[in-house]
Nucleic acid binder design. Structure first.
Lengths: 138, 138
DNA sequence: GTTTATCCTATTAAGTCGATAGGAATAATA
DNA sequence: TATTATTCCTATCGACTTAATAGGATAAAC
């Protein structure tokens, strides 16, 4: 299941992508519009700034804004930052690979093979969906 | 991410499906073959018995056995029992639906629409894969 | 220099996960 | 019938994660 953190992050990015001008948007505005705890959202936006998705401006008239165009931000990239691996088992993850402690040989593991399929399917959706698709939909 | 519980459950079912005769298999045999903590596996098998996937026999020569043919057991069904919802957000779940507390209208939520896609894709894989496929692969 | 905002660190309560412990119940068999 | 082998059941545990909160530091605008 998706954590609230990721869900909130996606909704916030989506909100920013819908802005017509490039003025920074304050946390409080987003948190009210999207029904998200302001303090929690604060930490989420902060981490997305630190990972290069968002820019910010302090002080009066400050806030957050997208650093890239919506069509350049894939959901997969956001997911990996906020949620972590897209794969369902670590031994199938492309970006967060870990050997399973219980499998001597993962190529002989039925679960492994199945989860490769699931990963590839999910990945193709998340890689090919961008914030732009979020904006267009409404 | 898949919990160990689900992974172990799948491996255990797979192990049972590979048996040639119909004799009950003991927990200890499965736990050693698959490198799973015996006590933990015990509780997993128990819950799969209670939900109708497995039969069991007590006492000497006892153990667990499949109640259905491998080709009749879809991974989706097992997943739902052990892991829970296949959907990434509760508002998209077919079997475990819950309204999101932050969305006044889920049809206007971009995350919702995206996760419907992911769910349908994952579902089509998990519904169409059965234990039989696990056996055939090796 | 006051106001408005983000930035940063720390803390917390509740829940989940993976595992363990110990014995009760039941079946086979000697 | 006594013994052994197995599942059954309940309870507990420590470690970790999640979602949220608190409080002040920093920076920019005016």
């Amino acid at each position: 299941m998706l954590s609230r953190k990721t869900k909130y992050g996606l909704k916030a990015l989506s909100f920013l992508a819908k802005q017509e001008d490039e003025k920074p948007v304050q946390i409080s505005v987003i948190s009210e519009a999207e029904n998200i705890s302001q303090k929690f959202l604060e930490s989420i936006l902060l981490s997305m700034r630190k990972t290069g998705f968002l820019g910010s401006k302090k002080g009066k008239g400050g806030g957050y804004y997208l650093l890239k165009k919506p069509e350049e931000i894939s959901i997969a990239a956001v997911y990996r930052i906020l949620e972590g691996p897209i794969a369902m088992v670590p031994c199938v993850s492309l970006n967060f690979y870990e050997k399973c402690h219980d499998c001597p040989d993962e190529h002989q593991c039925s679960v492994h093979r199945l989860m490769v399929q699931v990963r590839d399917n999910t990945l193709s959706i998340l890689e090919n969906t961008t914030l732009e698709d979020f904006v267009k939909e409404n």
